[in-house]
Design a protein around this nucleic acid. Structure first.
Lengths: 159, 159
DNA sequence: TCTTGACTTAAACATTAGTTTAAGTTCTAA
DNA sequence: TTAGAACTTAAACTAATGTTTAAGTCAAGA
């Protein structure tokens, strides 16, 4: 059950050159080579790649992942350190998701702003009369409408 | 009610050079200058910056934001286009958050893996007997435990 | 045996998103 | 009126994350 870099690339949906790049950066110190010098990936290597891919997609920089990988190579003495590392990344990721949810809420407010503008034919319905400035109460208006709705898409989706 | 670039930087918690960079990239075509050539930011400019900042933090590339800004400069004719743009970014962001939630779930599985390893004093408790390979059933075990728990942190947090 | 495709490396290149630097201008306050 | 802080620009620089290229090795099938 061994794979060459091309198989792995297909399986994990990563470019082969990206895998080589990760290797160079110290993310794959466990990979062995065959007689021809080609990387041979075993099942446990694939498991590892899955973790690396997860951390990458969570936004963890390559350097930090390399640190975690080093810990993994050092055996049971670093188990606690590895737990702490993942615990910390869990916190980071929770914060990131929470921040993105805030951005999503704001984006939806702007969607509502444009939905209502499209329906009115002009953005001016949200302006302070006589000025070229959005009424500061607009957001509060939206919030009020939002509380009356149980499906946000009724409020912000057009058509 | 006008602000100089330094005030804006403080208010929005961005570097002044970042603001100048955004300006150069076409994100702030509406900014006027005073007699001395200094950028003067008005309230509506701040509102705009808030939208830009939201898009940025949602991971939208500067180039794409510039496109949205151009539409905004073109008046009511582009209202629908702007709505569609935000609608599309909403979908992107929802997908992104959903993906990150998947990564969080995986990270928590690995945290459980290390919590139980730390408690056992060795990672070997998860290995296939005799081999240096994680038991493929490990994840299913975790899933089973997860279903029995109503607070995930009881399951994955150490101490 | 020869060709084709997959692998190898090091090094150059690309992109995104800024930051830093250098040189200069202008406002404010002592 | 002069020092210092805040602004201006263009251009060079940085960092992260790969991708591309060039030159070469190797294995498997016609």
């Amino acid at each position: 059950m061994e794979y060459l870099i091309g198989d792995v690339a297909k399986k994990m949906n990563i470019n082969t050159s990206a895998i080589r790049f990760y290797d160079k950066k110290g993310l794959l110190p466990f990979i062995e080579r065959d007689e021809a010098g080609r990387r041979k990936f075993k099942q446990q290597d694939m498991n590892f790649l899955e973790v690396i891919d997860c951390l990458k997609k969570s936004g963890v920089p390559v350097k930090d992942i390399a640190h975690f990988v080093r810990l993994c190579m050092e055996g049971d003495e670093t188990l606690r350190e590895r737990y702490d590392y993942l615990n910390n990344e869990e916190v980071n990721l929770e914060k990131k998701i929470s921040d993105l949810n805030d951005k999503l809420a704001f984006l939806r407010f702007k969607k509502w702003y444009y939905k209502t503008s499209v329906e009115a034919g002009t953005e001016k319905i949200h302006f302070v009369p006589g000025e070229n400035l959005v009424d500061p109460d607009t957001k509060a208006q939206y919030q009020a409408e939002l509380e009356k709705t149980d499906n946000i898409h009724d409020l912000i989706d057009l058509e």
